[in-house]
Simulated assay, not measured.
Amino acid sequence: MLLDTHLHLVNRDRLTYPWLDSLPALNRDWRYDDYAITAARLGVIGALHMEVDVTPDQIEAESGMVADLMAQPGSLIRGAISSARPEAPGFAAWLDRQDRGVVKGIRRVLHVVEDAVSQTPLFRENIARLGRASLPFDICMAQRQLPLAAALADACPQTTFVLDHCGVPDMAGDFTAWATQIAELARRPNMNAKISGLIAYGGPGWSLGSLRPYVESVIGAFGWDRVVWGSDSPVCTLEASLAEWIAATHALLAGCSEDERAALGHRNARRIWGLRD
C-alpha cells in the first residue's frame, strides 16, 4: 500500500499556473478523476495534494479546490500541502485563517527565489511558527542549496521538515557529493526525506539500476522511520507513467521487510502529517 504525499492536480478552469507556459508537456489539465482510476488500481490508498505554484492570490483557492475533492464520496485526497509565502509580513495572519482539516503542511519552492530568502530572520521566524502549529514544511531546493536546508532545519529545531525529491540530485553529476550532503542533512532529527522525483531527474535512460543508489542512500541515511513516498504526478510523466513509477518503487523495495515497506509506504506519512483514515 502507498500513501502518495506528492500529488499535483491542475485545473485551469479554477486556477492559474503561469509556469506551465514554459513546459508544454505538462501544460494541460491533470484531473483527480483520471489520477484516482490509476491510483486505485495500483494500491494507492490516499494522497496529499502538493501545491502547484498557482499565482499568490489563488493560494487559498487552491486549498478550496482540495477541500471540494476531499468531500467527494470515496475520495483518496487526505489534505493539502499548501503553498505559502513565509518571507511575507502577513504570513502569521494567513496561517491563522487556514482550515486545518484541509491544510496539513506547507511548501515554499525555494529554487525559484534568491538563496537569501530562506535565511532571513522573518522567514525563519515563520518556519518556526509552523512547528508550534504542528505543520510540517516541505523543502524543495536544488542540490547546490542543500547546505541552506541544513541551516534552516538547525534554526527551527521544533519544526518538522520533509526534503522533497531526495534532495533533487544532479543524476548526471557527482553521486558522492550528493550522498555526502544527504548524510549531513540526515543528522538533523527534525528532517525527513521523500522518495519522489527521481524518474523525472533520471532522464529518458533511467532504469532500476540508475535509481537504486539514490533510493538506498536516502533510506540508509534517514532510516526507515523518516522516509515517505510520493508520485510527483504528473511531473513523473515527463519520463515515465505513474504506473511505471509505482512498479519501479515496488521493485526497488522487493527485498525489504513488510514492516519497512509499510513505514515508507504509508505509516510515516500518517504520523508526519497527522492523517487519519
Rank of each mutant, 00 (worst) to 15 (best):
A40H: 09
A40Y: 00
R41H: 08
L42M: 13
L42H: 12
G43W: 06
G43R: 09
G43I: 05
V44E: 01
V44D: 03
V44R: 03
I45K: 11
G46R: 02
G46P: 01
A47P: 05
L48Q: 06
L48T: 07
M50H: 11
E51C: 07
V52F: 12
D53M: 10
V54A: 03
V54P: 04
T55Q: 13
T55N: 07
P56D: 10
D57E: 15
D57F: 00
Q58S: 11
I59L: 15
I59W: 12
E60L: 12
A61D: 15
E62I: 08
E62D: 12
E62Y: 06
E62T: 02
E62F: 03
E62S: 03
G64P: 03
M65K: 01
A67F: 00
L69T: 07
M70L: 07
P73F: 06
S75D: 08
L76N: 02
I77E: 02
I77T: 01
I77M: 05
R78F: 02
R78L: 13
R78N: 03
A80T: 10
A80K: 03
A80H: 14
S83A: 15
A84G: 10
A84S: 13
P86W: 01
P86M: 05
E87C: 08
E87W: 07
F91D: 01
F91Y: 09
A92I: 11
A92P: 05
A93Q: 15
W94C: 05
L95V: 06
D96W: 08
R97W: 03
Q98N: 09
Q98I: 04
R100M: 07
R100W: 02
V102A: 04
V102N: 02
V103A: 08
K104A: 13
G105H: 06
I106M: 14
R107P: 04
R107K: 13
V109T: 14
H111G: 05
V112I: 14
V112A: 14
V113S: 11
D115V: 09
D115K: 09
